[in-house]
Design a protein around this nucleic acid. Structure first.
Lengths: 102, 102
DNA sequence: ACAATAGGCAACTGTTCACTTGCATATCAA
DNA sequence: TTGATATGCAAGTGAACAGTTGCCTATTGT
């Protein structure tokens, strides 16, 4: 399991979450394709290097997996790490706030 | 819906996640009770003010709700905002466990 | 009233983070 | 090979963030 810290830190940035949205919509995009979509669809004026760094963070968190083909590197979304978020707090939720006095 | 940015930023800090764990285990704790548990159970040498600021961030994200009684302020966990995380990216994914919540 | 308890506000500090800039590497087409 | 494409690495900058420190307000018990 990828460390929880990497996962939550990766999700903390809005640009990275938009990248995840893009990869959810179309899997297997290259770095340049993601750059294009961010600037076209989302009006994000951001450099290629910045996107590359974001993808590295997402990959370290296990949210993005890559495969290399020649000079192209394709990126795919992996939602598996997201499940531990729900499992951490939603399971123990008995939904009844109990009253306590110190 | 609480802005997604507040939610993910709130979850980005390990101390705040530990506070959520504590509130999941025992609901309705006061600031001082949370401080005690963080230092006792988790060996977190952290000031009361720091915990107070963390709680404010968690409350802004909708993850913690508070009620005041005299000089006490009780904190309760609210896991509802966490569901939008799953709903954002896990919707098209069929490989995981079914969600049983209505 | 007085002191102790529970919490709040604001300024300051050191660190982390996102982004840029510049250069380098690797693959492919002519 | 030459040039164009696609990506990688690393140092530097400005802003955001976590935590501390100091002081203040409100409530409660004696």
């Amino acid at each position: 399991m990828v460390v929880a810290d990497d996962l939550f830190k990766a999700l903390a940035d809005p640009t990275r979450r938009t990248i995840l949205d893009e990869l959810a919509e179309k899997s297997g995009q290259t770095l340049f394709e993601i750059c294009s979509r961010l600037s076209m669809k989302h009006q994000l004026g951001i450099s290629r290097q910045a996107v590359s760094q974001h993808l590295a963070v997402l990959e370290a968190a296990g949210l993005v997996e890559t495969r290399r083909e020649g000079r192209y590197k394709f990126h795919e979304l992996n939602t598996a790490p997201l499940r531990q978020i729900a499992e951490r707090w939603l399971v123990a939720d008995t939904s009844g706030p109990e009253k306590s006095t110190p």
